[in-house]
Nucleic acid binder design. Sequence first.
DNA 1: GCGTCCAGGTCTACC
DNA 2: GGTAGACCTGGACGC
Length: 324
Amino acid sequence: MGAMKANDLPFSIHFKSKAISPYSFGLTVHKPAGWSFLTPHEVFEDNILWTAVRMPDGKMYGLKLKSTGTVKKPAILWEVFSQEKLDSNQTERVFCTIAWVLSAQEDIRPFYSLANRDSLVNALVNDLYGMRRTKRPDIFPQLILAVTLQMAPIRRSDQMMTLLIKEYGEKIVFDSKEITYWPSPAMIANKDFRELKERCKLGYRASVLKGIAQALCKGFPTLQELEAMTAEAAKAKLMELKGIGEYSADMVSPHPGFALDVWSAKIFGLLLLGKESETPRTVIPRLRKIAEKRWGRWRGYVLTYVLNDLPNLSKRFKLNLEEL
DNA sequence: GCGTCCAGGTCTACC
DNA sequence: GGTAGACCTGGACGC
């Protein structure tokens, strides 16, 4: 990896940004559950992250991030690598988008203050102090994730995503690292769905993904634009896409939501109701209501924290959350 | 080895 | 406004 120095993206600029405390850089960009920050093929070594970004206009950039502060006094150094020298407009756009993705200016202290009266939040905050939810620069990877998770065991979802990136992803090289990023909507929109199906083992999802890619190419709000809409309007817009239902829309929407599937419903069934439901799908609406009432706008944070803290929670509450 | 079952939802066609 | 039934197909599992 990374021997192709000649192809490296030649230009780079540095930024330094502060974040509102507490902000754990390591827990945020390299989540305990193993979820990637922006692409499964990014590199995280010695507390430095090399990854890739596709901006809403389709341009790809290399991104190198490292912490120059602490959880209490957070500061992040970024380096953005590009094929062409960025003008001031592009620089501004890239800066704003990446700052938004990092959620560095989000104040999570109200969430942490819930710990005073909520034993679950108290446990989460202790275990994962300073971890943040982050955003995505572009919407298509999130939609791919949502669609490949549907009706498939997690191993098969992984397989489909890995194949999509391998067959149709975009590769960039910078700072002696090679990073592969998700396919663009244009790439998938133009493929024959039988080829997609066979090469990526997508089953019926091949035509679903192709349809979504085509809809994005025709014009669709960016994630930042969806965030500027009301939560209801953003969700309705997402559900106009064929193959995106309530769960997927909640998962993709940048608004706080509580996207429960059968797997996470089993986990929250144990945590909130003390038992695993025999029909997890039917208790989802009930769990969503409880979560909204108990955690309000921070319920999405609780979801992310819980799913990244299963080993600790299992021990602490004497539950078997890891093998659901 | 070989057959059977079903998955971290969504849509459609019916009530 | 609510709910069976179909949807691709690769693994997991039982024999």
